[in-house]
Amino acid sequence: MSISRRNFLGMLAAAGASAAVGKKAQAASADFTGYPDSYGVLHDTTLCVGCRSCEEACNRVNNLPAPEKPFTDKTVFEKKRRVVTGVYTVVNQYKEAKDGKPPIFRKMQCNHCLEPACANACFVSAFKKTPEGPVVYDPSVCVGCRFCLLACPWALPGYEYDDPFAPVVIRCTMCYPRILEGKLPGCVEACPMEALTFGKRDDLIKIARERIRRHPERYQDHIYGEHENGGTSWMYISGEPFDDVGLRTDIGTTPPPKLTAGALGAVPIVVGLWPVLLTGIYGINKRKEKIAAKEKADAVAKAIAEKQAEADAALKAEKEKAKKAQAGAVEKAVKKALADAAKKAKEENA
Protein backbone atom coordinates (compact mmCIF):
# COMPACT_ATOMS: atom_id res chain seq x y z
CA MET A 1 0.00 0.00 0.00
CA SER A 2 2.65 2.43 1.06
CA ILE A 3 4.85 1.51 -1.87
CA SER A 4 2.11 1.97 -4.40
CA ARG A 5 1.29 5.24 -2.81
CA ARG A 6 4.90 6.32 -3.10
CA ASN A 7 4.95 5.27 -6.72
CA PHE A 8 1.87 7.23 -7.39
CA LEU A 9 3.33 10.31 -5.75
CA GLY A 10 6.56 9.75 -7.65
CA MET A 11 4.63 9.55 -10.85
CA LEU A 12 2.85 12.75 -10.08
CA ALA A 13 6.10 14.52 -9.32
CA ALA A 14 7.63 13.17 -12.51
CA ALA A 15 4.62 14.30 -14.48
CA GLY A 16 4.86 17.74 -12.95
CA ALA A 17 8.57 17.94 -13.60
CA SER A 18 8.29 16.80 -17.19
CA ALA A 19 5.50 19.28 -17.77
CA ALA A 20 7.63 22.05 -16.30
CA VAL A 21 10.68 21.04 -18.36
CA GLY A 22 8.59 20.87 -21.48
CA LYS A 23 7.33 24.38 -20.98
CA LYS A 24 10.79 25.65 -20.22
CA ALA A 25 12.31 24.09 -23.32
CA GLN A 26 9.59 25.68 -25.35
CA ALA A 27 10.13 29.08 -23.79
CA ALA A 28 13.88 28.81 -24.25
CA SER A 29 13.49 28.01 -27.93
CA ALA A 30 13.23 31.69 -28.76
CA ASP A 31 16.96 31.93 -29.32
CA PHE A 32 18.16 28.35 -29.16
CA THR A 33 20.94 27.77 -31.67
CA GLY A 34 21.72 24.17 -30.92
CA TYR A 35 23.60 22.44 -28.15
CA PRO A 36 27.24 23.52 -27.99
CA ASP A 37 29.69 20.93 -29.35
CA SER A 38 26.89 18.76 -30.67
CA TYR A 39 27.71 16.42 -33.54
CA GLY A 40 26.37 16.37 -37.02
CA VAL A 41 27.05 15.04 -40.49
CA LEU A 42 27.86 17.03 -43.60
CA HIS A 43 26.79 15.34 -46.82
CA ASP A 44 28.75 16.57 -49.83
CA THR A 45 26.58 15.38 -52.70
CA THR A 46 29.30 16.20 -55.24
CA LEU A 47 31.32 13.35 -53.76
CA CYS A 48 28.53 10.78 -53.56
CA VAL A 49 29.00 8.04 -56.17
CA GLY A 50 25.84 6.08 -55.36
CA CYS A 51 27.63 2.94 -54.11
CA ARG A 52 24.99 2.37 -51.40
CA SER A 53 27.63 1.37 -48.84
CA CYS A 54 25.86 3.66 -46.36
CA GLU A 55 22.58 1.81 -46.84
CA GLU A 56 24.31 -1.51 -46.33
CA ALA A 57 26.10 -0.32 -43.20
CA CYS A 58 22.90 1.19 -41.80
CA ASN A 59 21.10 -2.07 -42.35
CA ARG A 60 23.88 -3.93 -40.55
CA VAL A 61 24.39 -1.70 -37.53
CA ASN A 62 20.66 -1.46 -36.91
CA ASN A 63 20.00 -5.18 -37.43
CA LEU A 64 17.40 -4.43 -40.07
CA PRO A 65 15.88 -7.18 -42.23
CA ALA A 66 17.70 -8.09 -45.44
CA PRO A 67 16.46 -6.12 -48.44
CA GLU A 68 14.70 -7.65 -51.43
CA LYS A 69 17.46 -6.59 -53.80
CA PRO A 70 21.11 -6.71 -52.71
CA PHE A 71 22.87 -3.46 -51.91
CA THR A 72 25.05 -3.84 -55.00
CA ASP A 73 21.97 -3.65 -57.23
CA LYS A 74 21.92 -0.29 -58.98
CA THR A 75 18.50 -0.79 -60.59
CA VAL A 76 16.93 0.58 -57.40
CA PHE A 77 17.87 4.04 -58.68
CA GLU A 78 15.21 3.78 -61.37
CA LYS A 79 12.60 4.73 -58.79
CA LYS A 80 12.63 7.42 -56.14
CA ARG A 81 12.72 5.66 -52.80
CA ARG A 82 12.02 6.82 -49.28
CA VAL A 83 12.29 5.66 -45.69
CA VAL A 84 9.89 2.75 -45.21
CA THR A 85 9.56 -0.26 -42.95
CA GLY A 86 13.00 -1.76 -42.40
CA VAL A 87 14.88 1.07 -44.12
CA TYR A 88 16.31 4.02 -42.20
CA THR A 89 18.14 5.64 -45.09
CA VAL A 90 18.13 5.55 -48.87
CA VAL A 91 20.31 6.98 -51.62
CA ASN A 92 18.35 8.40 -54.53
CA GLN A 93 19.63 9.34 -57.96
CA TYR A 94 18.49 12.78 -59.08
CA LYS A 95 20.29 13.14 -62.39
CA GLU A 96 21.71 10.60 -64.74
CA ALA A 97 25.20 10.90 -66.14
CA LYS A 98 25.01 13.32 -69.05
CA ASP A 99 27.46 15.18 -71.26
CA GLY A 100 30.39 13.78 -69.35
CA LYS A 101 28.96 14.93 -66.05
CA PRO A 102 28.67 12.23 -63.40
CA PRO A 103 25.24 11.22 -62.09
CA ILE A 104 23.92 13.05 -59.02
CA PHE A 105 23.03 11.10 -55.90
CA ARG A 106 21.90 12.13 -52.46
CA LYS A 107 21.52 10.16 -49.29
CA MET A 108 18.32 10.79 -47.42
CA GLN A 109 17.54 10.21 -43.77
CA CYS A 110 16.31 12.15 -40.74
CA ASN A 111 17.98 15.55 -40.69
CA HIS A 112 18.14 15.68 -36.88
CA CYS A 113 16.92 19.27 -36.53
CA LEU A 114 18.22 21.48 -33.78
CA GLU A 115 14.63 22.09 -32.74
CA PRO A 116 12.81 19.15 -34.25
CA ALA A 117 9.25 19.61 -35.45
CA CYS A 118 8.56 15.98 -34.56
CA ALA A 119 9.59 16.54 -30.94
CA ASN A 120 7.50 19.67 -30.73
CA ALA A 121 4.51 17.91 -32.24
CA CYS A 122 4.65 14.72 -30.18
CA PHE A 123 1.99 14.66 -27.45
CA VAL A 124 3.76 11.93 -25.51
CA SER A 125 7.27 13.45 -25.79
CA ALA A 126 8.59 10.39 -27.58
CA PHE A 127 11.22 12.47 -29.38
CA LYS A 128 14.17 14.11 -27.73
CA LYS A 129 17.02 16.19 -29.09
CA THR A 130 20.10 14.90 -27.31
CA PRO A 131 22.92 17.28 -26.39
CA GLU A 132 25.17 15.07 -28.56
CA GLY A 133 23.15 15.96 -31.66
CA PRO A 134 20.98 12.96 -32.59
CA VAL A 135 17.22 13.21 -32.19
CA VAL A 136 16.13 10.01 -30.49
CA TYR A 137 12.73 8.35 -30.46
CA ASP A 138 11.22 6.23 -27.72
CA PRO A 139 8.77 3.72 -29.21
CA SER A 140 7.66 2.56 -25.77
CA VAL A 141 5.40 5.57 -25.30
CA CYS A 142 4.42 6.13 -28.94
CA VAL A 143 0.68 6.10 -29.51
CA GLY A 144 1.02 6.13 -33.27
CA CYS A 145 -0.78 9.38 -34.03
CA ARG A 146 1.81 10.24 -36.73
CA PHE A 147 1.71 13.98 -36.04
CA CYS A 148 5.52 13.74 -36.21
CA LEU A 149 5.30 12.62 -39.84
CA LEU A 150 2.89 15.43 -40.59
CA ALA A 151 5.02 18.04 -38.86
CA CYS A 152 8.34 17.08 -40.50
CA PRO A 153 8.81 19.62 -43.29
CA TRP A 154 10.59 17.04 -45.45
CA ALA A 155 8.22 14.17 -44.59
CA LEU A 156 11.32 12.16 -43.70
CA PRO A 157 10.09 9.68 -41.08
CA GLY A 158 8.25 6.56 -42.13
CA TYR A 159 5.65 4.52 -40.28
CA GLU A 160 5.05 0.80 -40.07
CA TYR A 161 1.56 0.96 -41.52
CA ASP A 162 1.70 -2.77 -42.18
CA ASP A 163 2.13 -3.73 -38.54
CA PRO A 164 -1.23 -4.15 -36.77
CA PHE A 165 0.16 -4.73 -33.30
CA ALA A 166 3.25 -2.68 -32.56
CA PRO A 167 3.85 -0.19 -35.36
CA VAL A 168 6.63 2.32 -34.76
CA VAL A 169 7.98 5.42 -36.47
CA ILE A 170 10.89 4.57 -38.74
CA ARG A 171 13.79 6.93 -38.69
CA CYS A 172 17.54 7.29 -38.55
CA THR A 173 18.99 7.43 -35.05
CA MET A 174 22.27 8.96 -36.26
CA CYS A 175 23.59 5.83 -34.49
CA TYR A 176 23.19 7.50 -31.12
CA PRO A 177 24.36 4.38 -29.21
CA ARG A 178 27.50 4.19 -31.37
CA ILE A 179 28.20 7.88 -30.88
CA LEU A 180 28.00 7.37 -27.13
CA GLU A 181 30.54 4.55 -27.53
CA GLY A 182 32.81 6.91 -29.45
CA LYS A 183 32.17 5.23 -32.80
CA LEU A 184 31.13 6.80 -36.07
CA PRO A 185 27.59 6.41 -37.41
CA GLY A 186 27.49 3.27 -39.55
CA CYS A 187 26.89 5.08 -42.83
CA VAL A 188 29.71 7.56 -42.22
CA GLU A 189 32.15 4.81 -41.41
CA ALA A 190 31.23 2.90 -44.54
CA CYS A 191 31.31 5.79 -47.02
CA PRO A 192 34.39 5.27 -49.21
CA MET A 193 34.33 8.80 -50.59
CA GLU A 194 33.96 10.63 -47.31
CA ALA A 195 30.92 12.17 -48.91
CA LEU A 196 29.63 12.03 -45.35
CA THR A 197 31.74 13.98 -42.87
CA PHE A 198 31.10 13.42 -39.19
CA GLY A 199 32.10 16.07 -36.68
CA LYS A 200 31.11 18.92 -34.46
CA ARG A 201 28.40 20.88 -36.21
CA ASP A 202 30.39 24.11 -35.98
CA ASP A 203 33.36 22.42 -37.65
CA LEU A 204 31.14 21.00 -40.36
CA ILE A 205 29.97 24.50 -41.23
CA LYS A 206 33.59 25.63 -41.44
CA ILE A 207 34.44 22.69 -43.70
CA ALA A 208 31.47 23.38 -45.92
CA ARG A 209 32.33 27.08 -46.20
CA GLU A 210 35.94 26.27 -47.07
CA ARG A 211 34.91 23.81 -49.79
CA ILE A 212 32.53 26.35 -51.28
CA ARG A 213 35.20 29.05 -51.11
CA ARG A 214 37.82 26.89 -52.81
CA HIS A 215 35.45 25.58 -55.45
CA PRO A 216 32.91 28.19 -56.41
CA GLU A 217 32.61 26.37 -59.73
CA ARG A 218 31.56 23.14 -58.06
CA TYR A 219 29.14 24.14 -55.31
CA GLN A 220 25.96 26.07 -54.81
CA ASP A 221 26.83 28.90 -52.45
CA HIS A 222 24.67 27.59 -49.64
CA ILE A 223 24.90 25.11 -46.79
CA TYR A 224 21.54 23.39 -46.65
CA GLY A 225 20.58 22.83 -43.05
CA GLU A 226 22.66 25.58 -41.55
CA HIS A 227 19.48 27.57 -41.04
CA GLU A 228 16.67 25.54 -42.67
CA ASN A 229 13.86 24.77 -40.25
CA GLY A 230 15.84 26.45 -37.49
CA GLY A 231 18.99 24.49 -38.36
CA THR A 232 19.71 20.78 -38.67
CA SER A 233 22.51 18.53 -37.48
CA TRP A 234 22.62 16.80 -40.85
CA MET A 235 23.65 19.30 -43.51
CA TYR A 236 24.22 19.26 -47.24
CA ILE A 237 26.35 20.96 -49.86
CA SER A 238 25.57 20.37 -53.49
CA GLY A 239 26.60 21.24 -57.00
CA GLU A 240 23.02 21.22 -58.19
CA PRO A 241 20.34 23.62 -56.98
CA PHE A 242 18.99 22.02 -53.81
CA ASP A 243 15.48 21.75 -55.22
CA ASP A 244 16.90 19.51 -57.93
CA VAL A 245 18.26 17.03 -55.40
CA GLY A 246 15.01 16.78 -53.49
CA LEU A 247 15.77 19.33 -50.80
CA ARG A 248 13.02 21.91 -50.67
CA THR A 249 14.24 25.47 -50.50
CA ASP A 250 10.88 26.88 -49.45
CA ILE A 251 11.07 25.36 -45.97
CA GLY A 252 12.01 28.64 -44.33
CA THR A 253 14.21 29.14 -41.32
CA THR A 254 11.58 29.39 -38.59
CA PRO A 255 12.23 26.88 -35.80
CA PRO A 256 9.07 24.71 -35.59
CA PRO A 257 8.30 25.57 -31.92
CA LYS A 258 7.79 29.16 -33.02
CA LEU A 259 5.03 28.11 -35.40
CA THR A 260 2.66 27.16 -32.61
CA ALA A 261 4.08 29.32 -29.81
CA GLY A 262 1.41 31.97 -30.36
CA ALA A 263 -1.45 29.48 -30.36
CA LEU A 264 -0.15 27.76 -27.21
CA GLY A 265 0.47 31.11 -25.59
CA ALA A 266 -3.22 31.91 -25.96
CA VAL A 267 -4.22 28.95 -23.78
CA PRO A 268 -3.66 30.63 -20.39
CA ILE A 269 -5.45 33.70 -21.65
CA VAL A 270 -8.50 31.69 -22.66
CA VAL A 271 -8.41 29.62 -19.48
CA GLY A 272 -8.04 32.71 -17.35
CA LEU A 273 -10.30 35.15 -19.09
CA TRP A 274 -13.15 33.11 -20.52
CA PRO A 275 -14.68 31.89 -17.23
CA VAL A 276 -14.53 35.38 -15.78
CA LEU A 277 -16.06 36.92 -18.87
CA LEU A 278 -18.72 34.27 -19.28
CA THR A 279 -19.65 34.31 -15.61
CA GLY A 280 -19.83 38.07 -15.85
CA ILE A 281 -22.10 37.94 -18.84
CA TYR A 282 -24.21 35.32 -17.11
CA GLY A 283 -24.33 37.50 -13.99
CA ILE A 284 -25.31 40.56 -15.96
CA ASN A 285 -28.06 38.67 -17.74
CA LYS A 286 -29.23 37.15 -14.49
CA ARG A 287 -29.24 40.56 -12.84
CA LYS A 288 -31.05 42.05 -15.79
CA GLU A 289 -33.64 39.35 -15.43
CA LYS A 290 -33.91 39.99 -11.70
CA ILE A 291 -34.27 43.70 -12.18
CA ALA A 292 -36.78 43.14 -14.90
CA ALA A 293 -38.69 40.78 -12.66
CA LYS A 294 -38.55 43.26 -9.79
CA GLU A 295 -39.58 46.11 -12.02
CA LYS A 296 -42.42 44.04 -13.29
CA ALA A 297 -43.46 43.14 -9.78
CA ASP A 298 -43.16 46.76 -8.71
CA ALA A 299 -45.16 47.91 -11.66
CA VAL A 300 -47.81 45.34 -10.95
CA ALA A 301 -47.83 46.30 -7.30
CA LYS A 302 -47.97 49.92 -8.22
CA ALA A 303 -50.73 49.35 -10.70
CA ILE A 304 -52.60 47.33 -8.17
CA ALA A 305 -52.05 50.03 -5.56
CA GLU A 306 -53.18 52.68 -7.97
CA LYS A 307 -56.22 50.73 -8.93
CA GLN A 308 -56.86 50.11 -5.25
CA ALA A 309 -56.47 53.76 -4.49
CA GLU A 310 -58.75 54.62 -7.34
CA ALA A 311 -61.27 52.10 -6.23
CA ASP A 312 -60.96 53.32 -2.67
CA ALA A 313 -61.45 56.87 -3.80
CA ALA A 314 -64.44 55.89 -5.88
CA LEU A 315 -65.83 53.97 -3.01
CA LYS A 316 -65.23 56.85 -0.69
CA ALA A 317 -66.89 59.25 -3.09
CA GLU A 318 -69.72 56.85 -3.48
CA LYS A 319 -70.00 56.54 0.26
CA GLU A 320 -69.84 60.26 0.64
CA LYS A 321 -72.49 60.62 -1.96
CA ALA A 322 -74.55 58.00 -0.29
CA LYS A 323 -73.94 59.68 3.00
CA LYS A 324 -74.85 62.99 1.53
CA ALA A 325 -77.89 61.55 -0.07
CA GLN A 326 -78.72 59.91 3.17
CA ALA A 327 -78.11 63.09 5.07
CA GLY A 328 -80.22 65.03 2.56
CA ALA A 329 -82.93 62.51 2.90
CA VAL A 330 -82.79 62.77 6.66
CA GLU A 331 -82.80 66.51 6.41
CA LYS A 332 -85.57 66.32 3.93
CA ALA A 333 -87.40 63.95 6.15
CA VAL A 334 -86.71 66.15 9.14
CA LYS A 335 -87.71 69.16 7.16
CA LYS A 336 -90.75 67.38 5.93
CA ALA A 337 -91.48 66.19 9.41
CA LEU A 338 -90.96 69.67 10.73
CA ALA A 339 -93.11 71.11 7.97
CA ASP A 340 -95.66 68.48 8.54
CA ALA A 341 -95.48 69.19 12.22
CA ALA A 342 -95.74 72.90 11.56
CA LYS A 343 -98.59 72.32 9.17
CA LYS A 344 -100.23 70.11 11.69
CA ALA A 345 -99.65 72.70 14.35
CA LYS A 346 -101.07 75.35 12.06
CA GLU A 347 -104.05 73.21 11.35
CA GLU A 348 -104.44 72.51 15.00
CA ASN A 349 -104.04 76.12 15.74
CA ALA A 350 -106.43 77.12 13.12
Binding site: L184, P192, E194
Partner: peptide, 14 residues
Protein backbone atom coordinates in the same frame (compact mmCIF):
# COMPACT_ATOMS: atom_id res chain seq x y z
CA UNK B 1 39.03 10.64 -40.91
CA UNK B 2 37.32 13.59 -39.23
CA UNK B 3 40.29 14.67 -37.19
CA UNK B 4 39.12 17.72 -35.26
CA UNK B 5 42.58 19.31 -35.57
CA UNK B 6 42.69 18.92 -39.36
CA UNK B 7 39.10 19.40 -40.32
CA UNK B 8 39.85 20.21 -43.97
CA UNK B 9 42.05 17.15 -44.53
CA UNK B 10 40.15 14.03 -45.58
CA UNK B 11 40.97 10.66 -44.03
CA UNK B 12 43.15 8.24 -45.98
CA UNK B 13 40.25 6.23 -47.41
CA UNK B 14 38.40 9.37 -48.43
Amino acid sequence: PFNADKIHVPGLKG
